[in-house]
Amino acid sequence: MTAGDSAGAPAVLDGPFTTRQLLRLDDALRLADQSTGLVFSVYVGDLDNPARGDAEKLHSQLADPDRSVLVAVSPNQRVLEIVTGAEARKRLPDRDCKLAALSMAASFSGGDLTGGIVSGLAQLADHAGRP
């Protein structure tokens, strides 16, 4: 997985999304970041067992974990994890995360990965409000 190399674009295109879907995701991420001041990030791929622990490990590798929100989706295991850092948790209570998770899982069960992630991010950003 060398998405950081100069040949990064093709590696990303091997992922689960088409170019159009990638653009939608990018828009959603940027909007969420700008409107809340938090750092949202989306991981789509397999998670080691236990999924919660693995998602938290990924979250701790982010640049600023305290202010970060990680949405980890594993389509094959059909697992979704939302991890909020200490600072982000004050703005995004677990109850709101659960609500977003429910609606995302509903989209995923219909086979719509992009739609679920985009609407979930919008919902999370909405609940977090302005900084």
Partner: peptide
């Protein structure tokens, strides 16, 4: 911007996880 996270995901996977006792969030399955 992605590079740090992506490489970290492979190399630092087994390093000691930082204190994350106060992380929150939610889980779901479908």
């Amino acid at each position: 911007a992605r590079r740090a996270e992506l490489t970290a995901g492979e190399t630092a996977a087994d390093s000691a996880v930082a204190a994350h006792g106060d992380t929150g969030g939610a889980s779901d399955r479908w």
